[in-house]
Each structure stands twice: as C-alpha cells, then as structure tokens.
Design a protein around this nucleic acid. Structure first.
Lengths: 232, 232
DNA sequence: ACCTGAACACCGTTCAAGT
DNA sequence: ACCTGAACACCGTTCAAGT
C-alpha cells in the first residue's frame, strides 16, 4: 500500500547483507545484554533476523565467533590505551598505571570478556600486541628484558585491567547472612566483616570497592617492581 | 562355570552401589585424565558402568557435580594446608608462603580445577574456610582487618596457589615461530624472547618456569604487604 | 530404594536444495 | 553468491516404568 519508508527499513531491515562485522557486533550486543550463556548460534541468528545456518557463511564456527569477540574487545582496549600516550623514559609507573586503568574500563563495559579471553586456547595476536606495548613501557622505564618478563607474570591478567574474583561481589547467601553461624565457622572472616560493617554501617556488605581494591593491588605491585628495577 | 572370583569383581564390578562419593571420584578421574570437556553426564555414567539417568539419584544436576568437584579439590587443599602448621605470630610470610605453595601442589594435580572454581556462581563454604585461614595467618602476623581484606584482593586467586595465565605456556603458533615477522609486529616481545633464547639456548622457548614465576610474584606481593603492615 | 528406556528440549553443525 | 529447511550427533534432564 504505502511506498517504502524509513520505518519499514527500521522494522524489517531486510537489505543490509550479513557480514562478519555485523555478526560479531550482534554477538557483543547479546553478551552485553544477556550474558555469555545467552550467546548461541540460533539466538545470534535471530538477533540478525536470519536463520542460524546463514551465519556459517561469515564465521567458520562458534569458536570463531568467540575469537571474534576477543578481537572486538581487544580492539577497544588498544584504542583506549593508545589515547594514554606513548612510553616515556621518566616515570614508567604513571604511564603504565594509566594504560592499565584505561584497559580496565573496556572490560568493565564487557563483563563477560575476561571469561572468554581466558577460555581461548589460542592466543590472539591483539593480546600479544597489547603485552608488547606493556613491555615497551617497561623497557623505556629502564627494565631489563628479564625483569620485564617477570613483571608480566606478576601482573598477570591485571595488566589487562581485570582480575577474576573468587568471591562473588554479591553475597546473597544464607551463610553470610547469618552472622552467628558464620562467626563460629569462619571467625576471622566474621571479624573482618564485622569491622567493615562497623566502619561503614550503610555499606550493606558491599564493602569490596572493586575499583579501590584494584588500584591498591596494582600500586603495591608497581611499587614492588620499581624496587626490583632500581635496587635488585 | 567357575565360581565367583576376585577377578570377576574387578572386571564386572556389579556390586558396589552408586553413591555421591563414587560419582564425584569418577568425575575427578575423568577430568584429570581427559579434561573438563570430556566430563558429560553420559560419559560419567559410562565410567561407573551405569546409565546416565542413574546419576540423578545421587547428584541433583551437572552443576551439583561441578560443585562436588570443587568440594573434593578444596578438601585436598585444606588437608595439604593443615600439614603446614598453625599460624604463628612471628614471620607470617614464611607460613603463608608455605601454605600457598602447598595449596598450589593440589591445583597442579588437577589442572582443570582453577577453571571450574572460577566458573562457579555460588561460593563454596570450603573456599570461604580456606580464606578464613589466610586471614587468620595475617591477623596473627599483626595485620589489621582492613589490610588483611586488602591482602586478599591483592593475592586474588594466587592465595589458592594458581593464576590463570593469559598466554598458553605452549607457543606452537606460527606467529611465534617466525622470528622475522614477529620482530616487526612485536618488537619488544621479540627482543625479550631473543634474549631469553640467548641466555638459555636449549630452553626451546619454554622460558616461563611456572613455579619460579609464581614464587617470584608471590614474594614480591608478600614483601609489599609486609611493608604496608609495618610502615603504612 | 535404586536403576532404566524412551523421550524432550536444547545445542553446534552438515548437506543438499533453493534463489 | 548467499540463504535455508531438514537432519544429525550430541547435550542435560524428565518421567513413567521396571526390579
């Protein structure tokens, strides 16, 4: 009846051809919105208004999609890090710190990214490139190759801006909720918690400030590395 | 024909009734031998000479099996750590270090354990108990609750004896194999590698000694924590 | 009480067929 | 060239039925 309108294009969106780029962007969108568990080939196809089997013309397999996700995220990381600036001889700590915190912001936008990154069996060239940059900063700061290598191990995934927390930051469990039972089983943690609650009564047990803890740990490590570099 | 013999019992093993314990032990065996990917309910049943559906009388679900795996491994960790000895006021670093390295040995026996541990959504009471012990050592060593809490964050999963390495220790990739191409793309890493090869010609690029790197990082962190504890 | 066969609702993926 | 329907080989899990 009515001629083709922009609204039609919006709702049907029949024209834009599929592409690897579009597939990966949709995959990121699903993971961001509904988590990694929601990312299936069928759901991904649905997001693109297409049948599942059509995806295989643009990505080889689901593994390839996951590799693509790493590519996308690391691309964002590299862009964020490049804005911080180039390595400079003086004060490697300041610049490395800034780069790591910039990378961290990307991972905070994509909470699923650490898990998929660590799950990959093959190491993406972009991850290697990122670490090459870290070593570059360290070398410019006066590190031997040997100590730079060790620094990579000490920083671990923290060099990319994330750590895999063993405790869920959301302690909704009954164990934690019942202070009496907990005090008996875990006296030290109970004491720790009790004092945290005392110091910050309205903290509602969300007493782990991720950003603060991350920076505290990062600074402690950077300090230790500088000590090794300067003194031995 | 022949009467029942021990050999029969060995091969058929028809008597021993299924139990949660036996299911979990079989699950550990499969994961140790063939990796986490090989651990399916059907394969697990097969290992026990039973149908898959029989498992559900002893474990609620596959998630419950994974929780059980954590239980088993953490049980071994607690046993290993208990042998090290109790917290003592003097020299918290020595005792914490020994406990962490003891825990590490368990994880080296079960390479899959870090992944399943980090994958769990609910935190096992045994993990909490382990960290309670860590805090106990720190407290005995003169840490405030606040700094002990921070120490947990700095150590992260290293407190349990493992770190999730981002690089696969096995660099069989073409990228790494071609030094010329690598030197161009990743000059800093190439230089690092070149020197490592120079220093250790027969190292065949296995230049990351996991145990050495782990202890180096651990000591750097413990030193930083002691500095914070003593001085501020 | 403990085990089972058949079945269901999901996966990722292949393949021959459509346009 | 790009997309699809039907199908295959796997999952975890349910349920009614066997002993």
């Amino acid at each position: 009846m009515a001629p083709r309108t922009d609204a039609d294009a919006e709702t049907e969106r029949p024209r834009i051809p599929l592409s690897r780029r579009r597939v990966l962007r949709a995959a990121v969108a699903i993971a961001d919105r509904d988590g990694l568990g929601a990312l299936t080939m069928r759901r991904l196809a649905q997001e693109l208004g297409v049948e599942a089997m059509s995806l295989y013309h643009h990505v080889a397999s689901k593994e390839a999609v996951l590799d693509g996700l790493v590519e996308v995220v690391l691309g964002e990381v590299m862009a964020a890090v490049d804005e911080v600036g180039a390595p400079s001889p003086e004060d490697w700590r300041t610049i490395l710190r800034a780069r790591i915190l910039a990378a961290r912001e990307v991972f905070l936008r994509h909470r699923w990214a650490p898990r998929v990154l660590e799950g990959r069996t093959t190491t993406s060239p972009l991850v290697i490139a990122y670490y090459d940059g870290v070593v570059g900063v360290l070398r410019a700061g006066g590190f031997s190759y040997d100590l730079a290598h060790r620094a990579l191990h000490v920083l671990g995934s923290r060099a990319l801006g994330f750590t895999q927390e063993l405790f869920d930051p959301d302690p909704g469990d009954a164990e934690v909720a019942d202070p009496a039972a907990m005090a008996e089983q875990f006296p030290n943690l109970a004491g720790m918690l009790a004092q945290a609650v005392h110091d910050d009564p309205d903290g509602t047990l969300g007493f782990c400030d991720d950003q603060f803890e991350f920076e505290f740990a990062l600074d402690l490590i950077l300090e230790g590395l500088e000590r090794r570099r300067a003194g031995g």
